[in-house]
Design a protein around this nucleic acid. Structure first.
Lengths: 330, 330
DNA sequence: GGTAAACATGTGATCGATTCCACAACCTAT
DNA sequence: ATAGGTTGTGGAATCGATCACATGTTTACC
């Protein structure tokens, strides 16, 4: 592989001069510059990023820690990150935590060993160890999806968005509104969306039956089971169901359809996420869409601000939502 | 940031000894080893990968070039790559080409400058410049999705899979089978799947109406338009439609449903990809599923073989398919 | 008791870049 | 003529690791 010394030798100058040409710094005579440029062109020389990183203590790379790439949410956020990072002249080192918190921490350390300039964490929870690892980090970081106190974060307006979806069901005349949520350990999707549901109902003077409120996991079968429990335990059958993710909502819709309920006339199903699933089902689910790509871009902005200023700055961005309750295909 | 010299000083040994402890090489006395290990633990020292890469001329990283991350196919392949790469102790440097061939080439060069140990390219086409860039590469590479002559490739049994889907339609008694394809410049999805359709029909003694064969792009609205053209131009309405992707099939199904055709009794829609969309639609689409995760893992295997042997070896892997024509949720 | 092998540790070069500093021309103003 | 600025160039240190080689100390065996 061609190095700066090869260029220097072939151009008949010192490697200092080559470096000056490369970085457009210091004084270089016209002839020297031309000679160096010619040799670089001939050899197809590309400076080694490693040597540069070692010397300059910056890598022009940001680490991105994700829980599974193959979900629509994650991949859309990464898409946004990828675009913004590229624009800033940086690159992505990807680390997949496969939903294991230990892996998240392990990867933070690994990324530090790679001396990336910053880390973007797509967080799934706010476990103490993760918070701690985040604080111990010697490099800038930004978190997407959860609100960590001591770190810049991009958060989704979960409470507002979930509230808006539920209020829309209420506005459509629904009064027996069921709920399929996830565990409260997930602050954003679990706790905040549930609170929004409870508050919206309370606000409208509705008291839900206990059976209408169910807790599930994150996969579709889990949504189906929750819907089955709801139907089995309830006294009055709901005329609407709000599930905290589209996937769960899809599971619920399948169950209600199988049991012969007419959708959406008898029971309107609503989810959250604005995923393709929601639009492609028939009838389409009601849902709320986050601009995930924008969230990714925003995370990069928060990170770059820290990298460029050299200071660990804590800033929050809140990503808004959009209600989708018509077939967006038309 | 802590370096090997800091460890050496604090442990009262030379950096060589620290290096020996780190790499479990050469002779180290029990006391020296213990002292070093203690200091490493206290300081949380992690060796710099850059210094290592520079010295050892290997990075323990593989570059992955993708066209847009936010499609199910891509993200599932990347998921597989991520798992396998992790297992081998390597990491991923991600580069997004956003479907632009120039970017693909640009990124190959960039990844070389980062001195990655190998490159995995999720290829969208077989343009001459890409082929050329691939040949000029000084480091091992593996391609997923297209068959490049001079590179190890993981290819999907497109012809066989598409043929199987169509034959299944025929076996179900369908005789007026429409087709929604994409441009032939895409060898795998465009050309091979179309050939499979034509051959399967020919084999069954069916001659399709010209209007039954339509070409579309890759997005859902494009599939809808193709279906509309089909219905408008045809003499006899098809009793089945085979689209080369699930997304296009979803578009077609929407159109046929809107026009009042009973699905699947009057018209059976089939796609390819085995995506979630296919399963969540009602009725579900017929489709064929590739083990994309496995394809990603396989690509890593092909790449690692080259990296470890130090030789550029050309090997082909063919990924099989699975027919999905029942509601896979049940 | 002497010599060779095994054990233990350190010195200095090296990887490929950047950058501080020294030095040499050459010009210009006093 | 001399001091001082501008321009152009290269030597050598540096970043953080690995490794060939040198060197010193034990242990083992005849």
């Amino acid at each position: 592989m061609v190095t700066i010394n090869d260029i220097a030798r072939q151009a008949g100058v010192s490697r200092t001069t080559v470096s000056r040409v490369l970085n457009a710094s210091g004084y270089v005579s016209h002839e020297a510059r031309k000679a160096v440029e010619q040799v670089i062109k001939d050899t197809g020389y590309v400076p080694s990023e490693h040597a540069k990183s070692l010397r300059l203590k910056r890598t022009k790379a940001v680490g991105v820690i994700i829980p599974r790439i193959s979900t629509e949410t994650t991949s859309r956020i990464v898409d946004g990150i990828s675009r913004a990072v590229e624009e800033a002249g940086y690159h992505i080192l990807l680390a997949n935590s496969n939903l294991q918190p230990e892996k998240e921490i392990e990867h933070m350390q690994f990324l530090e060993s790679r001396r990336v300039d910053g880390i973007i964490l797509l967080a799934t929870n706010r476990e103490a160890r993760v918070t701690e690892a985040l604080q111990n980090l010697k490099i800038p970081a930004a978190v997407v999806g959860q609100d960590f106190e001591d770190a810049s974060s991009v958060i989704f307006k979960d409470y507002e968005a979930a509230g808006a979806v539920v209020r829309q069901l209420i506005a459509a005349g629904k009064t027996r509104i069921g709920f399929i949520g996830v565990d409260d350990s997930d602050e954003a999707v679990g706790r905040r969306r549930r609170l929004a549901y409870e508050d919206a109902l309370h606000e409208a003077g509705i008291t839900p039956e206990a059976a209408w409120v169910q807790t599930a996991g994150f996969d579709l079968p889990s949504g189906e089971k929750a819907a089955e429990r709801m139907l089995q335990e309830c006294v009055e059958v709901p005329d609407a169901v709000f599930a905290v993710t589209d996937r769960l909502a899809a599971g619920a819709q399948h169950v209600f359809q199988q049991r012969g309920y007419r959708i959406p006339e008898e029971v309107q199903i609503a989810g959250m996420g604005g995923t393709e699933i929601a639009a492609y089902m028939s009838p389409p689910l009601w849902t709320a869409d986050y601009q995930y790509e924008e969230a990714g871009e925003e995370a990069v902005r928060l990170l770059m601000e820290q990298i460029q200023s050299g200071k660990k700055k804590v800033e929050k961005s809140r990503i808004s939502y959009r209600l989708l309750n018509t077939d967006r295909l038309s």
